[in-house]
């Protein structure tokens, strides 16, 4: 263990963490914090309303706030448990959104920014292979950043539970029997952890595509990485419109445009999974159980590893990463 922690590769990961600390950790903490602050605002608003209405605010089916909470707790414990579980998924969802953006721009800059500011000349003065350097960026993207996101989501959930507990206690309700007994975040949380390997393999084509442009271009990696597939997609659709031979439009957009650009979005393989089941997903606001159901079973999730889309994408991704390593070897400052 000690040998692993002290290996040069571990230092490369640590370097990525130091450099990206703000993006990796603090953006996640900020978003989780905002969610908690918003819920505190909600509680304050409810309390202020209660006081203004002279303790006679009617929620849904009558009764005051304390009573409403009491009712919810005693008559609808299943609903309460679901709400608590949903809270975990809400934190997970926001962490996932932040992670998607961070990953995309991290990968685009990973092999470009140090060429731009010439610090590549410092990194290259050390006995580290370019393969190790590029792989440290890949591991940061598929492991370090998602683990941080999932851990912060859990911390945010626990913070939210503490806020809710204080609120319950202030109304004379026992938060331990009412809230924490129903708190089954662990199952949801373990599911989030369990998606990390699937997300990782699924994301390889996007990781490879973004790193390739990051390592290769002399400027504007974002433009190259995005314009090439999008323009190709538009051209293909246009050729189709003219009735000339073309690649299937649906196939082109989903496999040659979305896959290299959007596969870093955690859980984006769900669309592919659902499409294979011949269904469509229909996510309604406030109801994420549609996704939940598909993420609900480990067997269903890991079924993704039996699909060709997963493995063809992974093979292409690995080839692109190899190309990025080659460019890293021979390109220097921009």
């Amino acid at each position: 263990m000690n040998a692993i922690v002290k290996s040069p590769f571990a230092w490369l990961l640590k370097r990525e963490y130091w450099e990206e600390r703000r993006g990796l950790l603090w953006s996640q903490v900020t978003v989780a914090g905002i969610l908690i602050v918003l819920s505190i605002f909600g509680i304050i608003a409810a309390e202020v309303a209660r006081v203004r209405m002279g303790g006679d605010i009617h929620i849904v089916s009558g009764g005051d706030l304390s009573q409403a909470l009491q009712n919810a707790a005693s008559h609808n414990s299943e609903g309460l448990a679901q709400a608590v579980g949903g809270m975990m998924w809400t934190f997970g969802l926001f962490a996932g959104v932040v992670l998607s953006f961070k990953l995309f721009f991290y990968l685009l800059g990973a092999l470009y920014e140090d060429r731009k500011d010439r610090s590549i000349l410092f990194w290259k003065s050390l006995p580290i292979s370019d393969t190790a350097t590029v792989l440290s960026k890949v591991v940061t993207a598929i492991l370090v950043m998602p683990v941080i996101a999932v851990v912060v989501a859990l911390a945010g959930f626990l913070g939210e539970m503490i806020v809710a507990s204080i609120w319950f206690a202030a109304h004379g309700l026992n938060p331990f029997t009412l809230l924490w007994a129903h708190a089954t975040p662990w199952a949801s949380w373990l599911h989030m952890l369990a998606t990390i390997p699937i997300n990782a393999v699924w994301a390889l084509p996007t990781i490879g595509w973004l790193l390739l442009w990051s390592a290769a271009v002399r400027g504007k990696p974002l433009l190259w990485a995005v314009m090439i597939p999008v323009v190709a997609g538009v051209l293909n659709s246009w050729i189709a419109l003219l009735g000339l031979p073309h690649v299937n439009i649906q196939f082109f957009w989903s496999n040659l445009v979305a896959r290299p650009l959007l596969s870093v979005i955690p859980g984006s393989w769900v669309t592919d999974y659902v499409a294979q089941q011949g269904g469509t997903i229909n996510i309604q606001p406030g109801n994420i159980s549609g996704i939940d159901a598909h993420l609900g079973s480990y067997a269903a999730m890991y079924h993704m590893f039996l699909t060709p889309n997963m493995w063809i994408g992974a093979a292409v991704g690995i080839a692109l990463i190899a190309a990025a390593i080659w460019f890293r070897r021979w390109r220097d400052e921009v």
Binding site: K6, P8, A10, W11, L12, K14, R15, W18, E19, D114, D117, R118, S119, I120, L121, F122, W123, L126, P127, I128
Partner: peptide, 18 residues
């Protein structure tokens, strides 16, 4: 050419590590 974000102790730790 030293990266602008790095701290003195981080630079020393890193080079010592690799």
């Amino acid at each position: 050419t030293l990266p602008r974000w790095i701290r003195v102790n981080e630079a020393v730790d890193f080079v010592a590590g690799v």
